[in-house]
Simulated scan of single mutants.
Amino acid sequence: MTAHEATGTAAAPLSERQREVLVLVAQGHTPAEAAAALGLSTNTVYSYLRVSGGKLGVPERPGLVHAAYTTGQLLPPPRDDRDCPQIPARQLTLLDLLADGAQVRQAAARLRISARRTRREIDALCAVLDARTAVHAVTRGWQLGLLGTPRHTRGAATPGANTGTETSCR
């Protein structure tokens, strides 16, 4: 839950340039790639991301993108129902945690696994979702209907549960 959701306050609007940076990062570009595409320095891109995170109350990039979609600061990506992958329950929980803005250590604690294992799970999630980065995984989650739908209710998955149950897109 973002700080603005918790307090019921509206997020400050993002500038056009902040939205441009966020769109590229959401599409799976690294900050360095986004900087090159926009003719900016990498430090300037990091600055835009930091300020955007402050405005939306979510400092972690995956959560920032999710908050931007949720608050209407960015248009959510179009739905993609082709070849919906089967996603293990733990990875689905991890996707929810990333969308909520959890840092790797926070996600690891919630999943009751090590930070190293959590990073491997993020890599596996990215592979399943055909995503380049954790931020892109959140965007793919939106495209596949795993996020931004009634199914995505915060805290719905049991932390640490690894039932082996796989979930397909809704």
Rank of each mutant, 00 (worst) to 15 (best):
T71F: 13
L92P: 01
T139Y: 08
P13L: 08
Q73N: 05
A68C: 01
D96Q: 10
R170V: 02
G155C: 07
L74I: 06
C84P: 02
G145R: 00
T158S: 14
L14V: 09
P159T: 10
C169H: 06
E20T: 05
M1N: 10
R61K: 11
L74G: 09
E121C: 00
A161T: 08
R154F: 10
T7E: 09
T153N: 04
C84E: 07
P13R: 13
A34W: 04
C169K: 06
R90N: 02
Y69A: 09
L74F: 10
A34E: 09
H152M: 01
T7H: 05
Q27Y: 03
A137K: 07
T133H: 06
E60V: 13
C169R: 08
V25M: 13
V138W: 03
S52G: 14
A35H: 09
E20I: 01
I113D: 03
R79H: 15
T167Q: 05
T2F: 03
G8A: 03
K55A: 10
G53T: 07
C84R: 13
L49S: 07
T153H: 15
A35Q: 07
L40C: 01
Q73S: 14
T165P: 00
L94T: 05
L49W: 07
A11F: 01
R79Q: 14
W142P: 02
Q27I: 02
R140G: 04
E60N: 13
K55Q: 13
R132S: 15
T93S: 12
H152Y: 14
A3W: 04
P31Q: 12
T30Q: 11
L147Q: 05
A108T: 11
G57P: 05
H4I: 06
A36K: 06
P88A: 12
E5R: 08
G145Y: 01
L92R: 14
V21L: 09
G8L: 02
L97D: 01
G39A: 05
A26D: 11
H66K: 00
Y48C: 08
A131M: 09
E121K: 01
P85I: 12
Q91D: 11
P78Y: 05
E5A: 09
I122Y: 03
G148S: 09
A131F: 07
P13T: 12
I122H: 03
L98P: 05
G101K: 03
H29P: 00
A37H: 11
N162I: 04
T42S: 14
T158G: 07
A32D: 14
Q27S: 15
A124P: 00
A124Y: 06
T163G: 11
D83G: 01
N162W: 11
H66S: 14
R19C: 06
A12V: 05
C169Q: 07
R112V: 04
V65Q: 08
M1F: 07
Q18C: 04
A157P: 00
R140S: 03
R132C: 02
L144N: 04
A109E: 11
P159Y: 13
A102P: 02
V51K: 13
A11W: 02
L38A: 10
T139A: 15
T2V: 03
L125K: 11
H29T: 04
W142D: 06
